[in-house]
Each structure stands twice: as C-alpha cells, then as structure tokens.
C-alpha cells in the first residue's frame, strides 16, 4: 500500500472530524493540566497546531523533522517555552501533543488499513512529543543561566561605607566572570561616589587559591589605576596560613584582619590627607 494513499486517508479523516477531534483533544489536555491554563488559550494553541499538522500532512510530510513540519515545529517550540515558563512539567508538556493519539485511535482503527495509518501517525506524534521535551529543556536551561547571571549581580554588591570609602564584601567563589562584574562595579562606584579608598572584604570567600588571588590582584590594580587606595580585609587565620604556604604574595597591598580595622585605617588616611590639604602641603 502506498504511503501517499495512507497520508491522504489520514488527511481526509482529520479534516472530516476536525471539530469533534479538536474538542476532544482540548478536553483531554485541559483535564490533564487541571485548569492551570485558560480554556481559551489552550483552545487557540491546539487549534493552530491541528491546522498546521493537517497542512504538513497535505504537503506530503510524514516525518516530524521534515521540511513540511517547520510550522508545526515552531508552534510546538512556542508551546513548550510557554509551558516551561508557566511551571508545567516536561511530561505534562509532551502529553499535550501525545493526547491526540488517544483521540484518534478509536476513530482510525476501525479496520486493518486504518490501524496501519494510525501507527504511522502515532510515530509522528511521538517524535513531535520528544521535540517538545527538547524545547522545554532548552528553555529551562535559558532560565537557569539567566538566574545565575542575576545572582552574580546580586552577590557582588559594592557599597559606600563612608564618605570617600567604598566596600566590596565578596561572598562565594571569585571566577573570571565574577571578577569582571566586581571590577566594573567597583570602578563605577568609585567614580559615582567620588571615593579615594576601596576595601575588598573576603570574609565570605571560603577558598583563596591562586586563581582567586590573581583575580583579587587584578581588581586592586584596576582600582589603583583610578587613583584609589585599595585594601584587602577579612583574611581569616586559616586563609592567611594557606596563602603563605601556597607562596602567594600580596606585595605592597595593605591587608587587614577585619573590615572594621580596614575602615578605621582608611578614615585615618582620609583625615590625614585633609589636614595636609588644609596646611597647603598637597
């Protein structure tokens, strides 16, 4: 039996039963989603999808990855992205497509030939179901990496501690991406607040290895190039011992055990500068 004939019979059946099938498909899926999606929206989504499938089949396609199904695929990707954002599970999303199988099975499998057609169509729907899962996962990954970026922003606050003093309380690990964000924020805040002193506090950094040290040094150099004095504070005893054993040298960068001490030091320097200024020494 020619596949073309099968496809034609399938199209005929889908066109003839359009209203009945889409209504039943809608009911199955909305029962599945338990009212978490408006009936109108679901009806529109599935209606569009149904039409697109009929058109793709009419154009002679039976492979979900074929050219004829481009429109169907883009609708499915759209649907999956929405479901992922609305918090539906991947199974619920795939079932939106697979439910069409249950709807069509009794209508198509009335004879042996029909059963064969149904099987072909079921395979196609399985493939389309998988496609929704792929699109769903991709969307979730995008959401996660966007959140990671937001977290990066949140976890690198740069604050004005006092007139002329900016503080950077670092928490967590300091990789290249984070260093970049910290550095940019620090330099901008130095300018915005017209500050001359920066204190980078590493109390919340659990591990200071050569990579973290290198990034800290880079940040200090950048701040110095803006004419700011830079101090590293919050070096806990166990970190100090580890840094020494590793062989890292902070050179002429002042360090302090606590942020409070670093702030006191910075304020003293600022007062000294002001005094010198008043005496006309500078």
């Amino acid at each position: 039996m020619a596949t073309e004939d099968n496809t034609q019979r399938l199209v005929d059946a889908l066109v003839a039963g359009r209203d009945e099938f889409t209504a039943q498909w809608n009911r199955t899926v909305s029962g599945n989603l338990q009212g978490r999606l408006s009936t109108a929206e679901l009806g529109r989504e599935l209606g569009e999808l149904y039409e697109a499938i009929v058109q793709a089949l009419t154009a002679g396609g039976l492979s979900g990855r074929g050219e004829e199904f481009a429109e169907v695929r883009s609708l499915l990707i759209e649907l999956s992205r929405n479901r992922a954002r609305q918090g539906f599970t991947p199974s619920e999303t795939a079932r939106s497509v697979l439910a069409l199988k249950d709807v069509l099975e009794p209508a198509l499998t009335t004879d042996g030939h029909g059963a064969e057609i149904y099987l072909q169509f079921a395979r196609l729907l399985d493939d389309l179901g998988l496609l929704t899962t792929e699109a769903y996962v991709r969307t979730r990954e995008e959401i996660i990496s966007a959140q990671a970026e937001q977290l990066l922003e949140l976890s690198t606050p740069v604050v004005k501690l006092w007139d002329g003093v900016v503080g950077v309380p670092l928490v967590g690990t300091l990789d290249s991406a984070r260093t970049q964000v910290v550095m940019e924020k620090l330099l901008q805040t130095l300018v915005d607040t017209n500050s001359t002193h920066a204190i980078i506090d590493i109390t919340g950094v659990p591990t200071v290895d050569t990579q973290v040290a290198q990034h800290l040094l880079k940040t200090v150099v950048a701040a110095r190039m803006m004419g700011a004095q830079c101090t590293i504070s919050g070096i806990r005893p166990q970190i100090a011992q580890t840094i020494v054993a590793l062989g890292i040298e902070f050179g002429d960068i002042p360090t302090n055990a606590t942020l409070a001490e670093a702030l006191r030091q910075a304020l003293k320097e600022i007062a000294q500068d002001a005094e010198d200024d008043a005496r006309g020494l500078l």
Partner: peptide, 17 residues
C-alpha cells in the same frame, strides 16, 4: 582542624583546576 581542612581544600582546588 580548620587550618588543615582549608589547606587540603585549597590544594584540591589547585590540582582540580
């Protein structure tokens, strides 16, 4: 101890990277 933990973890960080 905390110092030993920190030294070991830092070594692991270097070798892992």
């Amino acid at each position: 101890s905390l110092v030993h933990q920190t030294k070991l973890v830092t070594a692991a960080s270097e070798l892992g990277r």
